[in-house]
Write a protein that binds this DNA or RNA. Structure first.
Lengths: 231, 231
DNA sequence: CGCAGCTGTCACGAATCTGCAACACAGTAC
DNA sequence: GTACTGTGTTGCAGATTCGTGACAGCTGCG
């Protein structure tokens, strides 16, 4: 699962960092903005999957930001969750009318926040229509975490699956062991580069039975590549 | 699925609109009434699938409205959910005796309200027209809250049923324990993730007798999946 | 009250996965 | 050919993750 990115717009630094910490631990990528201006700047160069907006912000109220984002064609589809303090309860309606997709009342538990974020993301991701990626009969189904060949399922361990998922979504391109570690294992783990080789081996072995091991190609001196072109 | 219509009878505008917003987002058609008179007027020209009634209303108490609706042959079958404040807790009984099908205590989460609305609607759906979901002989009957195999009923506890219901309506897809907690337990409960395992176990055990436990599959490192494809 | 059915937790063992090191082999430079 | 670098392969000990039974609290019901 490619990690989702969340933009946090909150002026109080401790709160912002706490939220960021929680989200990161839950596997989200996090960007932070302390006011609406920073938020706009952040939105200018990246497109997060979801925005968390505090109700009270120094420059422009969170509500206005929400409205603005929902007005803009570019950002209209961007899910927004508002953070409101208990005392502002009455304003929830306004928040929702402004176009927020959900709201969370402070104080909230990390779990609650996560639940709502997941709920909103789920809604915004049209489920049911799983995208299937296929290379000459080798089918990747990201929804069910399976790789299939005809009616049969390729037996893969977690890491092998992630690896093949990455390869099939990034074919025809060479990745160094370093890059693979970064993108498959995640940035902050320390693992020997040669470990990649071992997993490549395991992946190939699993694909061998179906004759697809040739798709996993070694580029001597550089790294590995997934390609259906066997040339 | 043709969208269901809900009539909200609530005098406080912010609350009414918040509810309306939530329901609309969940795919309901919504009509609003601020007092009993408006409610009767609304009922005169449309027939909603469910009515949400606030306990405290300016002209006639919600309880009386409920009683009246339940007395009238025309509206007797109409499901009613009452909204009560925590302080009026003792009156729940009265509300239910008045004929309400369920009640929700304020403050409530949108999720909770939705869950109850769906539950009530499910119960009230004229049986016989129930949609049955089937996987190779394993039949889910959402109307009667039962799962059957041929003439026999699978013995499931409440949680197991909800779990299997969720799975059968969302097959072929991996859900993390977190997501399952969110979607089966509801967002604002704190439960250990490993509890899922235990219920999976119980579900499997119940299905075992019929040979369907293989449908409940573990995806190591990710979560669980329901799938009739065993290969 | 006691009982029966459900739930959520925990602890332990089993199953599986993971990273590493060590060795085998292949390709390249000289 | 030899030396050297880069990759394939294998076995294994440690670490994760999962399955499972036991248990205590809770609830509704005689």
């Amino acid at each position: 699962m490619p990690s989702k990115q969340v933009l946090i717009v909150e002026d109080e630094r401790p709160i912002r960092e706490m939220i960021a910490f929680g989200l990161k631990r839950a596997g989200f990528e996090v960007r932070e903005a302390e006011d609406c201006r920073a938020a706009r700047a952040a939105l200018a160069d990246t497109r997060p999957d979801l925005v968390l907006v505090d109700w009270m912000l120094p420059d422009m109220s969170g509500l206005e930001l929400t409205r603005a984002l929902k007005r803009d064609r570019e950002t209209r589809e961007l899910p927004i969750i508002m953070l409101t303090a208990r005392a502002e309860e009455g304003d929830k309606v306004a928040g929702l009318e402004g176009g927020a997709d959900d709201y969370v009342t402070k104080p909230f538990s990390p779990r609650e926040l996560l639940a709502r974020i997941n709920a909103v993301l789920r809604r915004s991701t049209p489920s049911g229509v799983d995208e299937l990626i296929e290379f000459e009969g080798l089918v990747l189904d990201q929804g069910s975490h399976r790789v299939m060949v005809g009616p049969r399922t390729v037996g893969l361990g977690p890491t092998e699956y992630r690896m093949l998922e990455f390869f099939m979504t990034h074919p025809e391109r060479v990745y160094t062991r370093d890059q693979l570690l970064d993108r498959i294992w995640g940035g902050n783990v320390y693992v020997e580069e040669r470990t990649i080789d071992v997993h490549i081996r395991r992946l190939r072995k699993a694909l061998e039975e179906f004759g697809y091991d040739r798709f996993v190609q070694t580029v001597r001196g550089s790294g590995y590549r997934f390609s259906a072109r066997t040339v």
